[in-house]
């Protein structure tokens, strides 16, 4: 049903997949995500919609293989199918009116969720720039795709192998110091990176949109596992987000909550072969 039609390795940790899901492709907007499962007893894993093709009826996702389920997904090849694929979930990104210039700051696979948002803004005539950060050159993703509509594509690597030596925030701070006026910053990547972007933007009060990735189960508002605190209030990221006003997000709580199952996740990852055998036996 949900057939993989394209697969590309991006670097030693991430891969890109295009999957057939016509109902999702027909309807999805920038900012939304999907949940998929690999195998009859597989976990439900949320992944942002990186790109979509309404005519072909496909969704592109960019995945970092970090543990059991993302590694199971990585094992699938073109022609294989994922067991379940549901979406689009979450609210589409709501862009403020009157935006003239917006910069996206992405860390690692954060490039995928930033891409459709900037593209949608560019299509509305907003000037968009992007800062892509990665540990090394191989982790800098989608620079060519961004070039098709971004005014500037800035790159930062930790070791200076490509672009500026440092982080995305290093570049962002430089641009602000140079007097570039951004009406909004869209920051998506690891939580620590989003937290650091907000540290840069907060003193200037630049509206900063972030996409939050707490642990989720259903993705429809039914379990409350995805609670985050924004402006002192509890929100369910899967239905109230995943985009939130970064200036008011409690990032520390989010990082703590993401660690809830660390021990169990590690165990499952280390015993993946045995679990896969058991799951196959059940099918």
């Amino acid at each position: 049903m949900y057939k993989i039609v394209r697969k590309e390795t991006l670097n030693d940790a991430a891969f890109e997949m295009e999957i057939e899901a016509p109902m999702v492709a027909r309807k999805c907007e920038a900012g939304q995500f999907i949940i998929l499962r690999v195998g009859e007893d597989g976990e439900r894993i949320p992944l942002t919609i990186g790109d979509f093709d309404r005519e072909k009826g496909t969704i592109t996702i960019v995945v970092q293989a970090v543990g059991f389920s993302t590694k199971q997904l990585e094992k699938l090849e073109v022609g294989d199918e994922v067991t379940d694929f549901v979406g689009p979930l979450g609210r589409p990104t709501e862009f403020h009116d009157g935006l003239k210039r917006v910069v996206g700051v992405c860390g690692g696979i954060g490039a995928a969720p930033v891409y459709p948002q900037l593209k949608a803004l560019a299509e509305k005539g907003v000037k968009v720039d992007v800062i892509i950060g990665g540990r090394e050159a191989q982790y800098v993703l989608w620079a060519d795709k961004f070039k098709t509509f971004c005014d500037h594509v800035y790159i930062a690597t930790d070791n200076g192998e490509l672009g500026t030596k440092g982080f995305g925030t290093t570049v962002l701070q430089q641009l602000i110091d140079e007097g570039v006026k951004f009406d909004e910053v869209i920051a998506i990547g690891p939580v620590i990176m989003m937290k650091n972007v907000v540290k840069v933007t907060k003193p200037y009060n630049i509206p900063t949109s972030v996409s939050l990735n707490p642990i989720m189960v259903d993705g429809t508002g039914m379990c409350g596992c995805c609670r985050v605190t924004v402006d002192g209030q509890t929100k369910f990221a899967c239905v109230d987000g995943p985009d939130f006003d970064g200036l008011n997000v409690d990032f520390d709580e989010l990082m703590e909550r993401q660690r809830f199952f660390k021990k169990e996740e590690k165990y499952v990852d280390e015993h993946a072969d045995r679990i896969c055998d058991l799951m196959r036996g059940a099918e």
Binding site: R44, F261, H271
Partner: peptide, 25 residues
């Protein structure tokens, strides 16, 4: 929430963890 706990255990077969991947603790 009871929903999360029960969903992990029932729908996701967390009662079989770690023989199934969805964690519950």
């Amino acid at each position: 929430s009871a929903n999360e706990f029960l969903t992990r255990v029932n729908l996701m077969k967390g009662y079989m963890f770690p023989d199934r991947p969805t964690p519950v603790k």
